[in-house]
């Protein structure tokens, strides 16, 4: 099974990359302005609310990346088109980075709000487990030297991990209701003021642009790598 994608498709990606980079930078600047100065502080949490504008988008895109990963692995299982494996392989590190950012900013937000750096809150705990799922996927690619085998195995594990995500979420919620003292305030507030939605959405958009940029760059790296290995084979045969 050869990668049936022409080089020209990836040249299109190459041409779009500068545009994406500019869009990312501009929307991050606008978003940061709104997030840090252009919006009022929350009337309960005060200025620590501003951490949410980087924390929440990271958590969203971390979860979305895992869904993309698992869905593309599933499609790969059905169609056996290696392109979907490349998608999964290139999005995994970005998702892991977003998960890490969500974890770190979450615990920074926790310090002024809860008074401690880490609470065994259901969301934080399941995010931590998600991070391990990402790590397992990435390490598996490195541990198996036969790339064809690695793609099959990691796709299977990504799918099993995807089945496991709701189970982990459910079990951690269950565990949390048993052990958590009720005094700690939850992350989600019932209603978000419109003035907070604007910076949140701009930052989310900027992070998404960043994700797409990184994704296209990594996709190109993977594609070039597979071309290199095929060329090497041609030369040494």
């Amino acid at each position: 099974m050869y990668l049936k994608l022409k080089k020209s498709y990836f040249d299109v990606l190459d041409r779009f990359t500068p545009f994406l980079i500019i869009m990312t930078i501009v929307s991050f600047i606008i978003g940061s302005y709104f997030a840090l100065y252009g919006s009022p502080p929350d009337y309960i949490q005060g200025d620590s609310m501003r951490i949410m504008y980087v924390h929440v988008p990271s958590a969203w895109w971390a979860l979305m990346s895992y869904s993309v990963l698992a869905v593309s692995c599933t499609i790969w299982f059905i169609t056996r088109n290696p392109f979907f494996n490349l998608i999964a392989k290139s999005i995994a590190p970005i998702g892991a980075v977003f998960t890490l950012i969500a974890l770190v900013t979450g615990s920074i937000w926790g310090k002024p709000t809860w008074g401690v750096w880490w609470v065994w809150d259901a969301r934080l705990t399941s995010m931590l487990l998600l991070f391990f799922l990402y790590l397992a996927y990435i390490f598996l690619w490195q541990a198996i030297s036969n790339k064809d085998l690695a793609s099959k195995i990691s796709a299977a594990l990504a799918m099993i991990g995807f089945i496991n995500v709701p189970i982990i979420k459910f079990s951690v919620d269950w565990w949390n209701t048993l052990h958590q003292p009720a005094s700690i305030s939850k992350l989600s507030s019932p209603s978000i003021d419109e003035s907070m939605l604007i910076p949140l959405f701009i930052m989310a958009f900027a992070s998404l642009c960043f994700l797409i940029t990184m994704f296209s760059v990594r996709l190109r790296i993977e594609f070039i790598e597979s071309r290199i290995s095929r060329l090497r084979q041609k030369i040494y045969d």
Partner: peptide
């Protein structure tokens, strides 16, 4: 790393 996250639900319940 692969195994432990999969074992967590069993431990919780």
């Amino acid at each position: 790393i692969i195994l432990i996250p999969l074992l967590v639900p069993f431990i919780i319940f």
